[in-house]
Simulated scan of single mutants.
Amino acid sequence: MSRTHIIVPGLNGSGDGDWQHHWMADHEHSELVEQSDWSNPHAGRWLARLERAVIAHPGAIIVGHSLGAILIARLASSSVAPLVGGALLVVPADIERTSTIHARTYEFGTLPTDALPFPALVIASRNDDYMSQEKARSLTSAWGATFLGFGDNGHINIASGFGRWTGGYDLAQQIEAKADRRLRHDIGKGLVENVYQI
Rank of each mutant, 00 (worst) to 15 (best):
R164S: 15
A87T: 01
H65Q: 11
N153A: 12
H102S: 11
R164A: 15
A81Q: 11
I72L: 07
L50Q: 14
R49A: 14
D129S: 12
L47D: 04
L148Y: 06
F108D: 10
G59V: 03
D94N: 15
E51W: 02
H102Y: 15
G86T: 03
S138P: 08
P117M: 00
L50E: 12
L116M: 14
W143F: 07
T110G: 03
V91K: 05
L116G: 08
Y106S: 06
L67H: 05
D128E: 04
V54D: 13
S132Y: 09
L139E: 02
P58F: 01
L111C: 02
V54G: 12
V90Q: 12
P112I: 00
I70V: 15
H102K: 11
Y130Q: 08
L75D: 05
D128K: 06
A103I: 04
A159R: 13
A76I: 02
L47F: 02
L121D: 02
T110W: 07
P82A: 07
R164E: 15
Y130G: 05
S99Q: 08
W165R: 13
T100G: 09
V63R: 12
A53P: 12
H102L: 02
V80E: 05
F150W: 11
S141L: 00
L88M: 13
T146L: 00
Q133R: 14
V54R: 14
A142L: 09
V80M: 05
A124N: 10
V90R: 03
V91S: 14
F150T: 02
I101A: 03
E107Q: 13
R126D: 12
P119H: 05
A73K: 10
W165I: 09
S77C: 02
A56R: 15
A93T: 09
F150R: 01
S77I: 00
L50R: 07
W46Y: 06
L50A: 11
Y130A: 05
Y106L: 14
A48M: 10
S141I: 07
R74Y: 13
P119R: 02
V80C: 00
I158E: 15
A103K: 15
L111G: 07
S125C: 11
T146N: 04
F118V: 01
A115E: 13
L89R: 09
L116T: 04
W46I: 03
R45V: 07
L111W: 03
A60C: 15
R74Q: 14
S125Q: 03
L139T: 04
